[in-house]
Amino acid sequence: MAVVNEGALKKMLKQYKYRDLTVREITNVISQYKDLKPVMDAYVFNDGNSRDLVSLAGTIPVSYRGNVYNIPVCLWLLDTYPYNPPICFVKPTSAMMIKTGKHIDANGKIYLPYLHEWKHPHSDLYGLIQVMIVVFGEEPPVFSRPTTQPPYQAFQA
């Protein structure tokens, strides 16, 4: 994966209010979860406004019924991070479908008490990902789509 050095990250997050805290957390998390990486992109809010924000995008390893799956997620950090929780989504590939439930809506947005009760410094990205791994290990947010069926053929009498 791409090597992201702290200097580059600091430059990327220049509009973040608590840049040093944010950079430190991102650096820590991507060193532990090597399939996540920071990406700068436009985040579109519900009101239609968009803003360039950093997200941690990639996969987290989730163990479900004895197998490990690389669940694709995207964690957006507001420029007020860590004083506001990340906005988190599961990002199904075309071969997957979202399983909506208590923790996941039809858009893939992730809802967790950990996010709802987010409070710096008790809450952080590392803790959040650990909670996700536990919760998703009980109830996966995505499943594989059934393999394509052969074309339908009518019964012939």
């Binding site: 791409a2 090597k34 990486k37 799956y69 399983k99 499943f143 594989s144």
Partner: peptide, 14 residues
């Protein structure tokens, strides 16, 4: 995913 792990998901639930 630029060299990251290949995303995967459990088989379809019934």
């Amino acid at each position: 995913l630029n060299g990251g792990a290949v995303p995967s998901a459990p088989p379809t639930y019934t």
